[in-house]
Design a protein around this nucleic acid. Structure first.
Lengths: 225, 225
DNA sequence: GTCTATACAGGGATAGAC
DNA sequence: GTCTATCCCTGTATAGAC
């Protein structure tokens, strides 16, 4: 019912574990757990209203009624808080992926769900920009690991799906996965700046192109379609 | 010999004119002209060394030996300065585009040139993130207009190129243009985070897919390749 | 025209009191 | 766990020297 991502990570990934070790310990008492949830929920509300750059720790704290310093009992930094929001969305996206009938089915579902919540798409894109301007940092690690996992996952799911239809790929599926992910992310940016860009329609175009390039599994290489 | 962009704008665009009217007047005296150039050049050096977010006005001023306030005689804001760098790169890219033999030839040329100057690619991507988190602003206008112009330009160049080879498109070329641009930008992000992602190779994959979808201009619709 | 000096509002991060 | 107070950084703005 939400999220923007290009496919949630198939599994959570080693980065997750490392990050957990580095960051604030998860609260164990009910009050702490509620507080942490409240911070995450309010953060989403605040940047839905004021944009990503308007979402300062002070603004979030103000929305809850605590000082900005209090937030840092739960999140070591503002960046960590925002990455946590992206991770939560990945988990939900992963759930919806398991219901989807095909790779591109999930992609277009995601694109359509995203169109209703531009806020999180914007957060994703802004964080992507933040990620690459750092030598290290939570956002950079998040995206690096995410891309790597998704390339591998998507690649194997594509292979599986092709063989189900009695097809064999004529192109490197790792490259195809990178291409699909790049197209998805790039189209989201264009859509954010101009909503006439129809992500779903263009993804279906890409799907047609890729399907046409596959060949029957029993045919000799060279004769496509 | 440089730049990252996905195709410089075919023409400069109305935004350019409006922006000029809004910003600081261009210097007319030799000293001012030299100073403005120096600021732009040093800016590139500074964020090559310290990253985009390390490129504060104070850092640039320090590299030149002037106060940060002096920079604002030439650029109304930090954002305007950075957008100016992107515009300069577009102009140079446009020149190289005219030498390229084909649409994808220019794209792969650009990708290869970019691989030597990760700095400007990072600037482009970071500014893209900045652009979408603003309701208005120089960066947002730059990217909105850039994408719109490039979709139109690329679309018409693709049509031209297909007809040169006696081919007709079976897909909407506006959508194809958006797809190519999205793939290019998205691949750049992935490459910035993991240089094992081979932009050129994947762009060639996309080119193959698109070429295979075209059909002879005299053939009836339905029979592809 | 060009530049310095200075002030301001806002950001994230941090130390230490309670 | 939360606070206040503080630090240092940022972009922006203005006044006035030369």
């Amino acid at each position: 019912m939400d999220d923007l991502d290009s496919f949630g990570p198939g599994h959570i990934g080693s980065y997750q574990a490392e990050r957990r070790a580095r960051s604030r310990p998860l609260p164990v008492h009910p009050k702490g757990i509620r507080r942490r949830r409240e911070i995450l929920d309010r953060s989403l509300e605040v940047f839905a209203e004021r944009g990503v750059d308007g979402t300062s720790l002070r603004a979030i704290g103000e929305a809850i009624g605590v000082s900005h310093a209090a937030l840092r009992n739960y999140f070591a930094s503002r960046e960590e808080l925002l990455v946590e929001l992206l991770l939560e969305r990945d988990v939900r996206s992963e759930a919806s992926r398991e219901e989807a009938e095909s790779v591109f089915g999930h992609l277009t579902n995601t694109a359509e769900a995203n169109s209703e919540i531009a806020g999180i798409v914007a957060l994703y894109t802004v964080m992507m920009g933040n990620a690459i301007q750092q030598a290290e940092g939570d956002a950079r690690e998040y995206f690096t690991e995410r891309f790597e996992l998704n390339r591998a996952d998507l690649s194997s799911r594509l292979e599986e799906e092709l063989s189900t239809h009695g097809l064999t790929a004529t192109e490197d599926l790792g490259d195809v996965a990178a291409l699909i992910m790049a197209a998805f992310d790039g189209l989201q940016v264009q859509w954010l700046l101009d909503d006439r860009v129809d992500i779903t329609r263009i993804l279906k175009l890409l799907e047609r192109l890729l399907l046409a390039s596959a060949r029957p599994a029993d045919a000799a290489p060279g004769q496509s379609v």
